[in-house]
Design a protein around this nucleic acid. Structure first.
Length: 114
RNA sequence: GAAGUCAACCGGAUGAUCGCGGAGACAAGCACCGAAAGGUCGUCUCUGAGGAAAGUCCGAGCUCCACAGGGCAGGGUGCCGGGUAAUACCCGGUGGGGGUGACCCCAAGGAAAGUGCAACAGAGAUAUACCGCCGAUAGCGGAAGUCGGUCUUUCUUAAGGACAGGUUUCCGAGUAGGCAAGGGUGGAAAGGCGAGGUAAGAGCUCACCGGCAGUCAGGUAACUGGCUGGCCCUGCAAACCCCACCUGGAGCAAGACCAAAUAGAGGAACGAUAGAGUGGCCCGCUCUGUUCCCGGGUAAGGUCGCUAGAGGCUGCCGGUAACGGUAGUCCCAGAUAGAUGAUCAUCACUUCGGAAGAAGUACAGAACUCGGCUUACAGGUUGACUUCGCUU
RNA sequence: GGGCUUGUAGCUCAGUUGGUCAGAGUACCGCGCUCACAUCGCGGGGGUCGGAGGUUCGAACCCUCUCAAGCCCA
């Protein structure tokens, strides 16, 4: 679990990012990014993705990607990671590649591989 | 060896690195977030998903509404006995059905308290007579016998023939009526089947079988068996209903505590024959307010409930069993947008492949807690039993 | 997490003591009308009644299980 200060918990925070943020998508995930606020992450996995086991798996994969690559962020921003259906059955490497591709495209990632 | 039945159990393992929730211990800045209540940050140790955690179909604990009380309505259960906190669950038995068998399945009270329904087909649907079977007396038709009459053949008697009639027997049609065996319809047609009997038939009579009533015996009971009696009663109660038993409502988002914090003796209206609690209605009980307008405040609250329990495991005793008693021992998740994860290696299993190797590893995620049921589920282990085949 | 509701034609809905053949509007197809199209008139096709099992002679309807969609509760 992420530390509480990095988690988005309130409905208003989600609405702000959805409304004002820019969206990027890949095969496994859609990411809304809103620059300017302290770093916070929100994860959304809808019920249409699958059953509880599959939804938990998706959330854990996304959280792990954030944990391992959080230090590479070069801009303060808030983002929402919205899981898509193809994340079911994907491996960690595939999801990580997918997320980092978006981060680089948005210009917020200056990590080791860039 | 093959096929099968029942029961119990497992449901990937080990290691390394990084990471998360909880508990305990130690430590820490008069640190940080917040109005406060309260929370956050470090290290070590221990610990961290299931047999279904699921569906929410039952039953309880617990909390509030009155220590949940009476009646009606409504709902539920439904062979019998036992187990249990309780049940619609479990165990044992009875009856019925299926299977060669081990064994499995059954909402299985009452249709003789009453009401209702039974489309279509069929003559008739809870009472009937379409086809059919039988058919008295009188009358009708036909055949045969007999009796006398009239006519006729023959010269006459006698004999023969024709016509109408009387009478007897047989046959046929058929009326009143009798029957319900057979045909056909249907899910169902007032026991089944055989013999006697009869004009034809029919429980009309009899034997056997089935059902019902009474009685005797066995069993706690469901029920079983024997004897006697007379044949009257189709199905549906997962239709209303009757009988017996059970049942107050809501649910941890219940509820309690703490927290800047509550501001109005404001105005108007209604009201002790009223209103609310009370969410089916009435009674009873408890409380005293209710509605509108004006004015003010809030919309990130926090903590507890929250896990030691009808608890697990082992032994002994009672019981056919479910289960109960007793002794010892163990502590086994408590999150709050929700922790149990990621990567790598080795092994196990399955599939593909000659091999190297590759791919895959079911159903599925705790949310107050238990007891059941139901549903989903790759593969595997163990035990008992049944049938068939082969060998000795 | 808890409590409840609804599933019938492509779409919106009817369908009650359980009965012969499951209906209406709209959409679709054909014919007529028109120079042609629309409107209008006539005719037609289209249904595992969400799924499975049971009760019954017979189930869209009654009962049980299951699937899907939706609503409410701080």
């Amino acid at each position: 679990m992420l530390k509480k200060k990095y988690r988005m918990r309130k409905k208003a925070e989600f609405q702000t990012v959805f409304a004002k943020g820019k969206s990027y998508s890949s095969k496994h995930v859609v990411i809304y990014i809103f620059q300017g606020l302290p770093v916070k992450f929100g994860i959304v996995v809808s019920k249409r993705i699958g059953n509880a086991v599959q939804r938990n798996r998706a959330k854990r994969l996304l959280r792990e990607v954030i944990r391992l690559n959080q230090d590479g962020l070069i801009v303060d921003c808030q983002m929402i990671l919205l899981a898509r259906r193809f994340i079911i059955g994907a491996t960690f490497r595939e999801v990580e590649k997918s997320v980092l591709y978006i981060w680089r495209k948005a210009g917020i990632y200056g990590g080791k591989n860039s």
